[in-house]
Design a protein around this nucleic acid. Structure first.
Lengths: 355, 355
DNA sequence: GCAGGCATTGTTAGCGATAACAAGGCGACC
DNA sequence: GGTCGCCTTGTTATCGCTAACAATGCCTGC
């Protein structure tokens, strides 16, 4: 396309060709109102003819703002964060922003601070931190105040803008679905408790049990991995009183399902299971998994909108946006084999919340 | 940290504080040799005191090169591409480069061209296209020649630098493992045939069968999804002569496992299965899945290295780097229940290729 | 002791855009 | 008809940095 070595055309080249000053070209590019239609067309033609492309670095230099949004995310292939990231890129691209990704190995203070530094070096216009862990809070403490910031899935108590999935509500959906099926109580294999996602799900699980007057068993602490679900499952499988389990994510549920199957406990006949995330494969677990679906695309869009708001008006008050998840019912939930003392009729309620 | 409105310090501020010219500051920043040690220290101190951060836009403006690498990837949460992307970001960050991601919904000509345009707008120093589909080729045709480009997982026949996983070798590992277990032949549930990954795996599967003198059954065409694996499984489960299946990825294998289980065909007793990708959950499928592990981190690193080579020397010849995958053996492979006519002793060969 | 060379530092000129101000042309209003 | 003011366009300064060249000082060698 371009001949190597041939400097790509600058604004003055366009100006010369169109017979105007470079400033007029700038006005056309930025859609200033006071340009004669005829001039505008002439400039546009010159731009097209030269294949002119404005130099963002020069623009950023003089305006002090780039069209770059920095995203700090954990270098992970965890389904949740990955989906969020992809959705955000998509939304930002549509709004004309480029997205610079700063992957971090772990979400601790140093790593995040480092990634943020790198982004500030790039003079990003705004910053999005996908910070689902408490350890990220420290890093956010000493965040420069002069760059718009939106946290996704972070500490709900932080003073800046935040978008998050209503983890507790999701957990409630899961628990209520299991209770409605007739289970006496619901066990919970949790995520790492320093993750807000995990904490919110624990909280929602506990609240839903208490609201229903059900006994609250101890949580089984896990990681997000299938391995931890498997470990939890080997323990729970030996406890005959366990008839319903809510796992903090779908991968744990996968491990749990395998452990239960190895111990001869059938799902959903002996034990009902509900997961969280609705990974694409969840429908093909054995059995297909009932799970909570967070609306990643909505979260990403809300995050971008919030950031753009701050970009437009730096004094805009911080927003706190909570996105409600929905329940996807499949066949991993059934009434308990041994009916509880006061049996309730099973009310499947196919779609308690579907949005 | 910064008071709003207070312009962040520029090079001249540092120069003033250190009592030198701004050019000396520039020299310190760029590690020029001819700076007195004492001066260097004074400048460093001033930089630290002011919290000075060089303005990349200004640097990019004058040098004509940014420290940004553009990555074009499909907006997908497919495990392979997502892992590749994460690994690449990591490697680039270590090399001091920021990564701007251009997600595309589909890998067709228009989408890719659009994403590339956006990156060129940002004046990226180099471009990485994760282009595992044939449809991406058109877009790469009319790529500007003056920006370094590396394709990952693209058409092996393209003239520019390319890094790819040796799909065929991976497939051979899978097939050989199954044949070594005593199976007469191996069926294949393929990926979308317009993906090079899928094509390479088909080719390797076929070659391995032919090399062993085994019959080559028709491929079962699938997508990458668990759903397609399930569909394929429902068909294969009804065919008693099918004792070994190699799926193009692990998610398909998951769906296949479920279909087989529903039809009462036990894995690995009745049917052996090998997948591809080694997703983290593969160890927790029922049964744990033997699968091929592509070395994503290596691919990403090789891609970056190749790009940096081109950056350093624009006339460097294009490279073609092929990364060999390895086989991870778990328990989804066993000798067939019905021995073939000429039974071979089972040779597990724990780690045929492990690197 | 002085010329030559190297190490070190400073000065000046851009890179390519936007911002601020200036200036010319035209119609409108008094 | 003259002045005011808007529309339109041009001129100049500036953003923060690096490249190229200039200038200084010190050491070396004859």
């Amino acid at each position: 396309m371009d001949v190597r070595g041939a400097r790509s055309p600058a604004m003055t080249d366009v100006a010369k060709l169109a017979g105007v000053s470079h400033q007029t070209v700038s006005r056309v590019l930025n859609d200033h109102p006071n340009v004669r239609e005829q001039t505008r067309l002439r400039v546009r033609a010159a731009i097209a003819e030269l294949g002119y492309r404005p130099n963002r670095a020069a623009r950023a230099l003089v305006t002090g703002r780039s069209q770059l949004i920095g995203v700090v995310a954990q270098n992970s292939t965890l389904y949740g964060p990955a989906s969020l990231l992809a959705a955000f890129e998509q939304a930002a691209a549509e709004a004309g922003f480029a997205v610079s990704v700063g992957s971090v190995g772990r979400l601790d203070r140093e790593s995040i601070a480092g990634a943020v530094e790198r982004h500030l070096d790039q003079r990003v216009a705004g910053l999005v931190v996908i910070a689902p862990v408490a350890s990220a809070d420290d890093a956010l403490e000493d965040m420069p105040a002069d760059v718009p910031l939106v946290t996704i899935d972070g500490n709900p108590l932080r003073p800046h803008s935040l978008v998050t999935v209503d983890q507790a509500a999701g957990a409630r959906l899961a628990v209520e679905c299991l209770l409605a099926a007739g289970h006496r109580t619901v066990w919970h294999v949790s995520g790492p408790p320093d993750w807000y996602d995990a904490a919110g799900r624990i909280e929602g699980w506990r609240a839903a049990l208490e609201a229903a007057g059900a006994e609250v068993p101890p949580t089984v602490a896990g990681e997000w991995s299938a391995a931890s679900g498997y470990d939890a499952g080997r323990m729970l499988a030996r406890m005959p009183e366990v008839t319903a389990v809510f796992t903090a994510n779908d991968h744990q549920a996968l491990g749990l399902l395998r452990a239960l199957s190895e111990h001869g406990r059938r799902v959903p006949h002996d034990v009902s299971v509900v997961g969280f995330d609705d990974v694409p494969e969840a429908a093909y677990f054995i059995p297909p998994l009932t799970t909570v679906r967070p609306a990643f695309a909505e979260v990403a869009q809300a995050g971008l909108d919030s950031l753009l708001t701050q970009l437009a008006d730096p004094d805009a008050p911080p927003e706190r946006i909570v996105i409600a998840p929905s329940l996807v019912e499949r066949s991993s939930v059934a009434p308990p084999a041994v009916r509880p003392v006061a049996p309730r009729p099973r009310e499947p309620e196919r779609r308690p919340v579907e949005q």
